[in-house]
């Protein structure tokens, strides 16, 4: 074999490197702030499983008390401890987010991959179905599910997850189609990679970074949607009420006891901002090239 001396361009590996265009510092600030906000809510949610300051149905606190050393967030109009309810609300919010996102991710990625890899007929059929599903209002879908299964947290999660899966499916289809058209897929198939292995090795890892942010947005959206459902009485019934239910109950007394309305609202906002910042930071970590096929 002939001896080849390397050129300068070959010897200097990073000479034409295209680094992430996003400044690293912003990434870490996003990760930090998002992580802290989201982390606090998550820790509170977990703590609520271990111990609560009061029984959720304990009405001995006196009605509509302002925050005090005993009742950190005051009490509601039945004398129940609001801090306890906020903790339970955090648990329900996490459960809703995780559940809905899990349903949306699994179902959406599955349908999207099938559409991307199947023949034209299946692809066309699935795509039209997805268009209809996406146009369908989440709340309406939720009401149908509630009518079918009764008002419960699970109904809400199922409905929100189903609605989200259509969006994820369409996104997966588009990105997977683009990945499949890449030369590296052709190269990999040339070396005999079968369909399933191709999905696992190349398609999923390359589709995944584009799904992180939408899924995180859906987490926030799911928490808000569940709050809306609870607000109109279609969510989890008291005393294990979500923040949405708390908002609704505090509505009539907002002038005398504003903390009961402000606190669940603040937590709702903190959760959503936290998950969004976290998602932004995570995307940059998941995609070190900063050049994912978007």
């Amino acid at each position: 074999m002939s001896v080849t001396v390397l050129t300068e361009a070959e010897r200097n590996p990073r000479s034409r490197d295209t680094r992430s265009r996003r400044p690293r510092r912003r990434t870490s600030v996003n990760l930090l702030v998002g992580g802290v906000l989201f982390g606090i809510i998550a820790v509170v949610a977990i703590l609520s499983l271990v111990a609560l300051p009061f029984e959720p149905s304990d009405t001995t606190g006196g009605r509509l008390q302002p925050p005090s050393p005993e009742h950190w967030a005051g009490t509601d109009r039945l004398g129940r401890d609001l801090f306890t309810q906020l903790m339970i609300g955090a648990r329900l919010a996490m459960l809703t987010g995780v559940g809905a996102v899990a349903i949306a991710a699994v179902l959406g990625v599955l349908v999207g991959l099938v559409a991307a890899m199947a023949g034209r007929w299946i692809d066309d059929a699935l795509s039209s179905l997805l268009d209809i599903a996406i146009a369908f209002p989440t709340l309406l879908l939720a009401m149908l599910v509630v009518a079918w299964r009764g008002a419960s947290l699970e109904s809400a999660i199922l409905a929100i997850g189903l609605a989200g899966s259509a969006v994820i499916a369409r996104l997966t289809r588009v990105t997977a189609t683009r990945v499949l058209a890449q030369d590296f897929v052709t190269a990999s198939r040339t070396s005999g990679t079968g369909t399933l292995r191709l999905i696992r090795l190349h398609v999923l890892p390359n589709v995944w970074p584009t799904l992180i942010v939408p899924l995180a947005l859906q987490f926030g959206g799911a928490v808000v949607a569940e709050a809306s459902l609870s607000y109109v009485g279609l969510g989890s019934p008291p005393p294990n009420a979500s923040w949405g239910r708390m908002l609704q109950e505090a509505q009539s007394t907002v002038l005398v006891a504003p903390t009961a309305a402000i606190l669940p609202g603040l937590l709702l906002v903190a959760t959503i901002i936290g998950i969004n910042l976290l998602a932004d930071g995570l995307r940059d970590v998941a995609d070190p090239t900063g050049r994912t096929l978007r």
Binding site: Q182, D183, F184, A187, S188, L201, H202, P205, N206, D287
Partner: peptide, 12 residues
């Protein structure tokens, strides 16, 4: 193939 950057998986 022609474009070496495209013929390898960017994330692997």
């Amino acid at each position: 193939f022609q474009e070496p950057l495209a013929s390898l998986d960017p994330l692997m």
